[in-house]
Amino acid sequence: MATSTRVALLVCPTSGKGRAGRVAGTVAARLRDVADRLDLHVAPSAAGTAEMARKAVADGVDVLVVLGGDGGAHLAVQACAQSATALAVVPAGTGNDLATALGATSLDAVVTALRDGSRRAIDLGRVENGPWFATVLCAGFDSAVNERANSMRWPAGPRRYDLAILAELATLRPQRLVVETEDALLELDALLVAVGNTTSYGGGIPVCPDALPADGLFDLTVVEATPRRTLLRMLPTLRTGRHVEHPAVRTLRARSVRLSGTSWVAYADGERMSEVPLTTTCVPGALTVVSGAG
């Protein structure tokens, strides 16, 4: 590389049912080809991942590479946000939505981006008095699906979310939701709300299909109360992003969002956040990423 680059590789060995641990040696060897120095860290737990990420950033590494899924990436985002350390993600988890948003769909893509020095700044969401998130914050039906999917041992990958969706449909009930932004106020019976910094969650479901991670705005998708049979017909369009064309779907853009009026639990980056009410704000350029996209 043109300049001296110090890279830390943070391995989440249980990601992808152990896949991250199995490929760690190969990933480290490839990264050594494009880094002047590579520090290797293997995290035994989520708490260990968070602590190792904080220490690597405090130690001044140029790039923190996470080998894992969205959970490990979410913890690394907390350390890298508004720092001089760039984040890269080698996908090895179940969903890999952040890696996909960054154009890091393979080890080769990450190695090439590191070699070329491809970096850019993206926005992050921040929950008031809480953590950062890089992809999508959701509440309602979709967060219930997330909670169920996280508890399932089988199957792996996007099919897990598909089965969780079907299971949650059986107990689906709308709630009164209030959505406040700097320009709008919505109060309606709703099934879900998604606040997107990037397009997708749940292993590639483009719930906010037009979201851009560097425009300084969230994209919001709100699904109004609708009969279960109507929702069933709508579900296949989630995989293509065409659900936003349905009359029961509202879309908004906003810099800041307050959600209230429900007892829903919010998830972001696939991780449990807090109960509604909550406020979240889009912070422009809060994270530097190693990326082959955009």
Results as ranks from 00 to 15, higher is better:
Ser4Glu: 06
Leu9Arg: 12
Leu10Val: 04
Val11Ser: 02
Gly18Leu: 09
Ala20Arg: 03
Gly21Gln: 01
Ala24Glu: 10
Ala24Val: 01
Ala24Gly: 07
Gly25Trp: 02
Gly25Met: 07
Asp33Tyr: 07
Val34Gln: 05
Ala43Ser: 12
Ala46Thr: 11
Ala46Ser: 06
Thr49His: 05
Thr49Met: 05
Thr49Leu: 09
Met52Ala: 15
Arg54Thr: 14
Arg54Ser: 11
Arg54Val: 14
Ala56Val: 14
Ala56Arg: 14
Ala58Glu: 15
Ala58Arg: 15
Asp59Leu: 03
Gly68Ala: 02
Gly69Thr: 03
Asp70Ala: 04
Gly72Asn: 04
Leu75His: 06
Ala76Arg: 13
Ala76Gln: 11
Val77Asp: 13
Ala79Val: 08
Ala79Asn: 13
Cys80Glu: 05
Ala81Thr: 11
Ser83Lys: 14
Thr85Phe: 08
Thr85Pro: 06
Ala86Gly: 15
Val89Gln: 03
Gly93Arg: 04
Thr94Trp: 08
Gly95Leu: 09
Asp97Lys: 05
Leu98Met: 13
Leu98Cys: 08
Ala99Tyr: 09
Ala99Gly: 11
Leu102Lys: 08
Gly103Asn: 06
Ser106Glu: 06
Asp108Gly: 00
Val110Ala: 01
Thr112Met: 02
Thr112His: 01
Ala113Gln: 02
Leu114Cys: 03
Leu114Trp: 07
Arg115Thr: 04
Gly117Phe: 06
Arg119Gly: 14
Asp123Ala: 13
Leu124Trp: 05
Gly125His: 10
Val127Asn: 09
Val127Ser: 07
Val127Ile: 12
Pro131Tyr: 01
Trp132His: 11
Trp132Asp: 03
Ala134Pro: 11
Ala134His: 08
Ala134Gln: 11
Cys138Ala: 11
Ala139Leu: 01
Ala139Cys: 01
Gly140Pro: 01
Phe141Arg: 00
Asp142Asn: 04
Ser143Val: 00
Asn146Phe: 00
Ala149Met: 10
Met152Cys: 05
Arg153Met: 08
Trp154Leu: 12
Trp154Arg: 12
Pro155Met: 10
Ala156Glu: 06
Tyr161Gln: 10
Asp162Pro: 03
Ile165Thr: 11
Ala167Asn: 01
Ala167Ile: 06
Glu168Val: 02
Leu169Ser: 00
Ala170Asp: 09
Arg176Val: 12
Val179Lys: 04
Asp189Arg: 03
Asp189Leu: 04
Asp189Val: 04
Leu192Met: 03
Leu192Ile: 00
Thr199Met: 13
Ser200Cys: 13
Tyr201Gly: 02
Tyr201Ala: 11
Val207Met: 09
Asp210Lys: 07
Ala211Tyr: 12
Leu212Ser: 15
Phe218Ile: 09
Phe218Gln: 10
Asp219Cys: 10
Leu220Ser: 08
Thr221Ile: 02
Glu224Tyr: 02
Ala225Asp: 08
Ala225Asn: 01
Thr226Pro: 15
Arg228Leu: 15
Arg228Cys: 15
Arg233Trp: 00
Leu235Asn: 05
Leu235Gly: 00
Thr237Arg: 09
Glu245His: 09
Ala248Asp: 13
Arg250Thr: 10
Ala254Asn: 14
Arg258Thr: 15
Ser260Trp: 08
Trp264Arg: 02
Val265Met: 03
Val265Trp: 01
Ala266Glu: 08
Ala266Gln: 06
Asp269Leu: 06
Glu271Tyr: 04
Met273His: 03
Pro277Cys: 08
Cys282Ile: 10
Pro284Asn: 03
Gly285Gln: 12
Leu287Met: 14
Thr288Tyr: 12
Val290Pro: 03
